[in-house]
């Protein structure tokens, strides 16, 4: 474990905590895409199929349980909680899941390191995670007033991806050379999707203005 990986995991954890804080204390999910949250629940479910079969470390297992538990509870809150669900704007969050899920599944079946169920599911989760933020980014663009917590949430998610790239560069020079081009390409694509958001995020921060993405 290097410092970039740890920092990446912590920003990822903070992003989830910020979102749960917004949902749990303010009882609002305004500006949050249920589609993206459902895709993340699917990402973690398919990626962590090895949770009970391959033990890596206690840290690893605990973090996996946190990401699984938090992603499903966020989906539950937005769909079922009697107050939270009222703030969900269904008409704005129109992105179709299958536009992302089906191409990722097809890609994972054909492009993977090993054609086994677990490996294909793991590869699928990488492809899907890369694009799962799209419904959220589309929703942000449609939202005239992006509240602070939503902005922080997306920023932390983007920071997590950027730190993972630094982690891979570090690992590349310090560890035995593994084949990881699938992780790299999916990860770089995922990080690039945040580039536009980062630009406007820093602009609003520099000019001390409210964050707003151009339509």
């Amino acid at each position: 474990m290097n410092i970039f990986r740890l920092a990446g995991d912590m920003t990822h954890l903070f992003s989830v905590l910020v979102l749960l804080l917004k949902i749990h204390t303010i009882k609002s999910c305004a500006g949050i895409s249920l589609k993206t949250q459902e895709l993340y629940a699917l990402v973690f479910t398919t990626r962590y199929l090895d949770i009970f079969t391959d033990f890596i470390s206690l840290y690893n297992t605990v973090m996996k349980l946190i990401f699984l538990g938090s992603s499903f509870s966020i989906v539950w809150y937005i769909r079922r909680h009697k107050i939270v669900r009222r703030s969900y704007d269904k008409d704005q969050d129109t992105f179709r899941h299958y536009f992302l899920v089906i191409p990722c599944l097809v890609l994972a079946v054909f492009i993977n390191h090993k054609f086994t169920f677990k490996e294909v599911m793991w590869t699928f989760s990488l492809y899907l995670e890369a694009v799962a933020i799209l419904p959220q980014l589309v929703l942000l663009q449609r939202t005239r007033n992006i509240d602070n917590l939503t902005g922080q949430y997306v920023f932390l998610l983007g920071a997590y991806r950027a730190l993972y790239i630094l982690n891979w560069i570090y690992r590349h020079f310090t560890e035995p050379h593994y084949v990881h081009w699938i992780t790299w390409i999916a990860g770089v694509v995922q990080t690039l999707l945040y580039a536009d958001f980062f630009y406007y995020y820093f602009q609003s921060w520099k000019n001390n203005e409210k964050l707003q993405l151009p339509a």
């Binding site: 890596i56 973090m63 990401f67 390191h113 050379h177 593994y178 084949v179 992780t183």
Partner: peptide, 10 residues
């Protein structure tokens, strides 16, 4: 020598 990647990340 290149080996398959371990799934040790989150």
């Amino acid at each position: 020598k290149k080996q398959p990647q371990p799934h040790d990340e989150l």
